[in-house]
Nucleic acid binder design. Structure first.
Lengths: 341, 341
DNA sequence: TTGCCTTATGAAATCGATTTCATTATCGTC
DNA sequence: GACGATAATGAAATCGATTTCATAAGGCAA
């Protein structure tokens, strides 16, 4: 049974005040005197009134919603991030919209359009693959300041970025292997052109240089963060005459695929070869062997992005300092061991 | 640079028509003549007009949004479902909101409130743990017909349900093990009280009866769909004097945890013991050994739920037939083999 | 007491679309 | 040629909140 909608008018009548006063009680209670306020609250309770968001949004020229651009919802890595974002927006009155940029790619002025339509007030982009054109459209329409990047980012753009300390993660991984005694360490990269691929590779390179532990080009294997690319990397490694004794993978999924491939090829992890991942997805703790990896604090990343965006929404044009990288942590489990003598 | 918003007025002026006509061109083009329509479109292009969603929503008394209630975004199982839902709503003008019911539990009239606030037009609940109270509130406020359940459901309620054929999945799993020669088959259940736990257990029981393959109570092990519960189940099995030769798990995550635990305890899968999962999450193909499991078509489940909800939103009070269960499929990989002689 | 300032409240305008109702033009039919 | 039906369009009301502006009351200083 659909019931007649109760408006502010009804509440006002019930409380013997004007609609304006009801509105004030709801949005700026300090402006109205205690007894009046009480009466209004009583009337609200009595009538079961609920404010109509559409009306409020129209009048206040807001959307009360933010959009999260996720490259691929299917990847377990993102779920923790999303939970963090949800938590960050809980109780703020913002609705969290999620879109999968792989399923429906963002092009042209689509994103800017969401802002202009009044569908969203802000956006968190987890997709470093957004085109300059898309972002330019947003800037052109004056909404560039309401976008923050999370985990990934777009080279050459100046949007705020919240991300893990990727380079440090790579350094930790390499150092860990070095300290175990490894000197022949391979790397499975992310997709070429991805900012994380670069950041992690750079971290690896500096640490290698510091430790004087170079790697022949053959040991730098192109991957794409997927299980399959891990498997493919395993095949390559199995075919090498000069095999590495350890592999640092740019993602846990890659590491898990790699281990599967190595295992299928007769190499045991960590006895024959050590493997380090990156991310610390839930699965990693339970894979066989449990994966040594670099933990990204996904919940915190998500929460922080929400905070930064909320800041920017409440105080427009305030220049924010670049956000410090979120620390990462080496988690030592069972996929790494000293190399065979 | 924020620019003055362009309204329908502006377009109307530009095209020398009334705002009403512009509105018609946008929402019901058949009502306006070709040349006028053309002129309006030209004016829209020229002015760069975009319709204001808040205004439209207010006037049309809609929210143009649906809410997805996910028990735990962190579980990889749900990402494929969400992708399917996203796909199902793509191009419909509906925004997809997602909330994690574990992070912020839905209680009392919160859900009904979203409807009443005009925040959402419909909801897809993946959470069979919603209380009767919450649902009653929705029905009381006349929005019960705009809720559909997906994967899980609440016993004793009459909402439409889209779900896999859970019982059939269980039967397939048991039959597969039987055909391999197993006669001593254990089961790790889901959490007690969960509808999926019951559905899968029932399917298992009927198939056992049919095959005349009973199981002592000891072999029915309580789990909760988590990796940890799989590990715990492994410990129990390792401690049994009369060990089963195969285990059917109510979820892939459980199976993966179980295998890890068995492995740690010195039992090899599938040589010493076979394991079947349920879900076919991405990981299962790549775990060691690759997991034999019951595949749920997650993308299709999501898409179908979107379709059903869209139907109900466009034609209110039409009684829909119960949706047929989405077929499941036995995927045979490497975690099952004939029992040792 | 007068005058100015502050505070609490109400009346009415406003946000930007959709839709009802009225009006005019057009068409087909007898 | 007239009449009723139909089609295309515009004027104005409407959705339900917020906010500006005006007003009245009360407080304080001179």
């Amino acid at each position: 049974m659909i019931q007649k909608t109760i408006t502010m008018q009804d509440v006002a009548r019930e409380a013997n005040v004007s609609p304006a006063t009801v509105s004030r009680v709801l949005t700026n209670p300090g402006l109205v005197q205690e007894p009046t306020r009480e009466a209004v609250h009583e009337a609200i309770r009595k009538t079961g009134y609920r404010v109509n968001q559409a009306a409020r949004n129209l009048r206040m020229r807001r959307a009360s919603a933010v959009l999260i651009l996720v490259p691929n919802l299917g990847k377990p890595f993102y779920s923790g991030i999303l939970a963090g974002i949800s938590a960050g927006f809980a109780g703020t009155g913002y609705a969290v919209l999620i879109t999968d940029t792989e399923n429906d790619p963002i092009q042209g002025s689509v994103l800017a359009g969401y802002f202009l339509d009044g569908r969203i007030d802000g956006a968190i982009a987890l997709d470093g693959g957004l085109s300059h054109e898309v972002l330019q459209e947003c800037s052109d329409h004056g909404v560039g300041e309401r976008i923050v990047f999370l985990c990934e980012w777009v080279e050459g753009e100046t949007f705020p970025v919240i991300s893990s300390d990727n380079a440090e993660g790579a350094r930790l991984a390499i150092r860990h292997l070095y300290e175990l005694g490894h000197r022949k360490v391979a790397h499975v990269t992310g997709p070429e052109g991805n900012v994380l691929t670069t950041a992690r590779r750079n971290g690896m390179v500096t640490e290698r240089a510091r430790l004087n532990m170079p790697a022949p080009p053959e040991w730098i294997i192109r991957g794409d963060f997927s299980l399959e690319s891990g498997r493919a990397a395993a095949a390559k490694i199995l075919g090498m005459s000069n095999r590495p004794t350890a592999v640092f993978c740019s993602a846990d999924m890659v590491a898990i695929g790699l281990i599967a491939g190595l295992h299928a090829g007769g190499l045991k992890v960590p006895e024959d070869i050590s493997v380090v991942g990156f991310d610390d997805i839930e699965m990693s703790e339970h894979s066989i062997p449990a994966l040594t990896t670099i933990r990204q604090d996904r919940h915190r990343l998500g929460r922080r992005a929400a905070e930064v965006l909320l800041d920017r929404l409440s105080q427009p044009d305030c220049a924010t300092d670049p956000d410090p990288a979120i620390p990462v942590e080496l988690v030592i489990r069972d996929s790494t061991a000293p190399p065979k003598a």
